[in-house]
Simulated scan of single mutants.
Amino acid sequence: MLKILPLLTASILAYFVLYAPQPLFPILSLALELTETQTGLLTTATMLPLFLAPLTFGQLLSRYSPERLLRVSLVLLAVTTVGFVLADDFTLLLVIRFCQGLLLPVLLTSVMTLTSRSAGPASIQKAMSAYVTATILGGLFGRLISGLFADYSDWRYFFYVLSVLLVVMACFPFGQKGYSSVQDDHIHWRDIKVLLFERGLGLVFLAVSCLFFIFSAMMNFLPFRVGELNAQASGLFISLMYSGYLLGVVTSLSSSKLSSLGGGNYRTLIIGFIIYGIAIAMTAINDIAVLFSSLFIFCGAMFLVHSIAAAWVNTVAAEKRRLVNALYLTFYYLGGVLGSVLPGLVYESLGWNYFIAVLLLAAAIGLVSISKIKLQEYQ
């Protein structure tokens, strides 16, 4: 795993960029006089191109080597991170976050492709579990550290440090010089049709979309829910509510063993989605301790499903690995885009319990999708 360590570090920094602003939402909301849904658009603005870009950038991803794209995206992310700090207008912030969203799918698709190449067919499950673990750590510590800076210093300093780390990371060797710029990963729409329908990946992608719809909604509006239950909650306190990510690290790294214990990928995915739904329902209880506990179960189930699904699509990708990873990210972040907006509108107008009802409906759709995968011999 040492040879993919630079790739995993790049993923961690990418998720710092994506999620570090979330604990700051109450601060930004007050400073810019925004509603909860308006503030949530700072996540939506980044996820929208994350949903659109993997496929619309297909020719770019095919024309240049993933190593080069990874380095360029890291440097440009550093520039936009500084811009986020300096911007004092909400519209400008949205534009900057949108630009970051254009860069992140290029970075993440390149990382996923290089990681799966480095691992080889025999170690894809472990390598992709390590990748998912890196994204978990990035999501957790990005939020936690930004909350610490907000409480004990100035949140802006964190983003300055992050921009420097991104530039430094762009200088690291990624160990993939043996590959030509584009060998076999050209993206064609007919290939997408084959992957979605003939190879049965469409059901996997639909389930993944529902998975991240729920997760994005919960993580985006969690700071406001914490504020409802504890009006004195600090930035650090809100950041610590994301500690459930730690169980996600465990389930991600243990996904192969858990799959074996669960009776195979199909059965484990079913179990994972059921546990996911139970954790969602638990968050309806008006108790901050129960909310904190339920988020551990919630994150553990989410990243178990995510790890198994991400590894499996790479095992069936064959020569179309970059296309499959682009499709995976497209559907994954489509769920994120919708989840960062639609449930928030329900939350604003009807309250948390109706918000939870929407998430449970999405979980049911994902569970049904998973149940159909067995027909495609998902084992």
Rank of each mutant, 00 (worst) to 15 (best):
G264E: 00
S256G: 07
A284C: 11
S256W: 09
A284K: 09
T283N: 12
T268H: 09
M282H: 04
D287T: 01
A284W: 13
A279K: 11
R267W: 01
N265E: 04
S259P: 07
Y276V: 04
G272S: 10
R267K: 15
A284H: 07
K257E: 00
L261T: 02
Y266F: 11
L269S: 13
S259F: 05
S256T: 06
I274V: 15
L261K: 12
G277F: 06
I278D: 07
L261D: 01
A281G: 09
I288Q: 11
A284M: 15
A279H: 10
G272T: 05
I288F: 07
I271A: 14
L261H: 09
L258D: 04
A289W: 13
G272H: 03
N286V: 03
L258G: 07
I274P: 09
I275D: 01
I285K: 11
Y266S: 04
G263D: 01
L258Y: 02
T283Y: 08
A281S: 14
L258I: 09
I275H: 03
S259Y: 01
L269F: 00
G263M: 04
I288R: 15
I271L: 12
D287W: 02
F273N: 14
S256P: 03
L258S: 02
A284T: 05
K257G: 08
T268D: 11
L269M: 14
F273S: 14
A281R: 14
A279Y: 09
K257F: 04
L269H: 09
A284D: 15
I285A: 08
L261I: 00
G277L: 12
M282A: 14
L258F: 04
I280W: 08
L258T: 02
K257P: 00
I280G: 10
L269K: 11
M282L: 15
F273M: 14
S259D: 04
S256C: 03
A284E: 15
I280N: 08
T268L: 03
M282D: 03
Y276W: 13
F273D: 15
I288V: 09
I275N: 10
T283I: 12
I285D: 00
N286T: 05
I285M: 10
Y266P: 04
R267F: 03
I274Y: 08
G262D: 12
I270W: 10
A281M: 12
F273H: 13
S260K: 01
I274K: 06
Y276D: 11
I280V: 15
I270P: 11
D287Y: 07
I280M: 11
T268G: 01
T268F: 05
D287Q: 12
N265R: 03
G263F: 01
G277K: 05
S259V: 00
G264D: 01
G277S: 15
A289M: 07
I275G: 15
L269R: 07
G264A: 06
Y266C: 02
T268C: 02
K257C: 02
F273I: 07
I270Q: 15
L258P: 01
T283E: 01
G264I: 00
A279P: 11
I280K: 11
L261N: 06
G277M: 13
N265T: 01
I285L: 13
A289L: 08
G277C: 13
L258H: 04
N286K: 13
I278Y: 15
S259Q: 06
L258M: 12
S259H: 05
D287S: 13
A284V: 11
I270M: 15
F273Q: 12
A281P: 10
N286F: 01
I288M: 10
G272E: 05
S260P: 00
G264S: 07
A279G: 10
R267S: 14
